[in-house]
Design a protein around this nucleic acid. Structure first.
Lengths: 220, 220
DNA sequence: GAATCAAAAATTATCGATAATATTGAAAGG
DNA sequence: CCTTTCAATATTATCGATAATTTTTGATTC
C-alpha cells in the first residue's frame, strides 16, 4: 500500500508498529520491548531501536532512558493540542496551496470526500479523509510542513479509532464540501476559516463528554 | 549546559552534532559518515545511527536509504517555510500561555531581552533570543507544540548563524519589547500579531537580497 | 581524449553477543 | 500483615564483526 520493501528494515518495522498504535492494537501505556519485537520481525535489536526513534519523533511512543519505550497515552488535553496544531498548520498550508489548486485537484479532493461518505468502516473513512486533506494541501510544496501535518494526522486518527471502533455510520462531510465550494469560488479566507474549525472538531465523544473544541474563535 | 551525561549516548552524540550543524561547522550537503563519528565519540555504530534518526526528525539532516545522511541544505524557500511554521505555532502557543503569564515570567522574559541587547556575538544573542521565546511560551503547557517549536528554532538559528557569523552588532529588540508591553497591558491579540510578524522577520540578507517575508499579512 | 566497465575500496545496514541497569519476587524484620 | 532489603531475572544500551551496497579507481576501448 505504502512503499516497496527495499527501504531499511527499520522503516518497515516502524510503519507496522505505527499502524498498530494508530489502530489501537497497542494500548496507550503498553511497553514495547525490543526483544520480542526483534524476534517477531526476524531482525536484531538495531533496526527495532531505530524504529523506536522514528516512532518517538512522530509522537506515537514516549521513551524513558534505560526504561524502554511505551505507547504514548493521549489525554483529552493532548488530543486538543494536536487538533489545534493541525488547525494552525493546515490553514497555513492551505493558504500556500490555494494559488496552485487546479480544477483537477479540487475534483480529486471532492472524489475523496465522496469516497468517505460511502465508507463502510472507520478505517476506510479515515483513509478517505486523510486523502482529502493531503490532496488539498500538497500543492503548497512545503515538505517540512507537510511532514509535520502527516504526523499530527496520525495522532488524530488514533483518537478517532479509539472512540469509534464499533458503532459507525459514515457522516456526510459538510465541512469538506464547504471548503471545496469556497475554494472554487476563490474565497480562500472562508476556506481557511472552515478548515481551521473542521480540523478542531473533536467528535461527539472525548475522554469526557466535553466535546466542544476550545480553540473555536469564530462563530458557527 | 544542557543536561547531565547519564542519558543515552545517542542523545549526547545527536546534541553535539546538532550544535555543529546549527553553528555551521558542518556545511549543508556534507556527508555524515557513521564510521568516523563513532570513532570520534569512542562509540560503536548503533548510537551514531540512533543520533542520525533523531537529527533527521529535527530536520537537520536528510537520510537517503543505503546512501547515508547528509546535512540538510536550506534554500531561501526552506527558511521561509520554517519561519512561517514558527509564526503559526508560536502564536498558538502564546495564546494558550497568555492566561498563565505572571508578572515574574514577564520580568524574566524582559531580562532575556536585555541580555540579548548586550550580547557580544551572534551565539549569545541567539541564546538570549531563544530564552525569551521559551520563557514566554512554556506556560502554554503543550509539550508537543513546544517540542516542535524548539526544532523550528534550531533550524532558524542555523540560518541566522550562516548569515551573520562575522559582522555583528546587537540590535535593540523592539519587537520583544512591544510584545511584552502588549502582554502587560493585557492585549493578547496585539502581542500575538507582533510575535507572528517578528518570527517571520528574515533579517537583512537572505540567500538573495529579497529579505521581505512573504507571510506578512497585516500592515506595519 | 572521453566514455565505459569491472574490480577494489569504502560505507551502510544488520547481526549475535556482552555489559550495565532496571524490575521482580521472596525472605527478613518491624 | 505491611514494609524493606537483597538477590535472581529480565531488558535496555552498547559493542565488535559480518553481509550487502554503493562509490571509486583504473585500466581499456572507441
Amino acid at each position: 500500500m505504502t512503499q516497496a520493501k527495499d527501504d531499511p528494515l527499520a522503516m518497515r518495522i516502524s510503519r507496522v508498529l505505527a499502524e498498530r498504535i494508530i489502530a489501537g492494537a497497542l494500548a496507550p501505556g503498553a511497553r514495547l520491548r525490543q526483544g520480542p519485537i526483534a524476534e517477531e520481525f526476524g531482525a536484531s535489536h538495531m533496526p527495532v531501536r531505530e524504529a523506536f526513534r522514528r516512532l518517538e519523533s512522530q509522537g506515537l511512543v514516549v521513551s524513558e532512558p534505560r526504561r524502554g519505550v511505551r505507547v504514548a497515552g493521549f489525554s483529552q488535553a493532548e488530543v486538543k493540542e494536536v487538533a489545534e496544531m493541525r488547525a494552525a498548520l493546515e490553514v497555513l498550508a492551505l493558504r500556500h496551496a490555494a494559488p496552485h489548486l487546479t480544477r483537477a485537484i479540487l475534483d480529486a479532493a471532492e472524489e475523496a470526500t465522496r469516497a468517505g461518505d460511502h465508507a463502510g468502516d472507520v478505517e476506510a473513512w479515515e483513509e478517505a479523509n486523510r486523502l482529502f486533506h493531503r490532496t488539498l494541501l500538497a500543492p503548497c510544496a512545503m515538505p517540512r510542513l507537510l511532514r509535520t501535518i502527516d504526523d499530527l494526522q496520525a495522532a488524530s486518527a488514533r483518537f478517532l479509532f479509539s472512540g469509534w471502533r464499533a458503532e459507525w455510520e459514515a457522516p456526510t462531510d459538510r465541512d469538506h464540501r464547504a471548503i471545496l465550494a469556497a475554494l472554487r469560488a476563490g474565497n480562500v479566507d472562508l476556506a481557511a476559516l472552515v478548515l481551521g474549525r473542521h480540523v478542531q472538531w473533536i467528535g461527539p465523544r472525548g475522554q469526557d463528554q466535553a466535546g466542544r473544541p476550545a480553540g473555536r474563535r469564530a462563530g458557527p
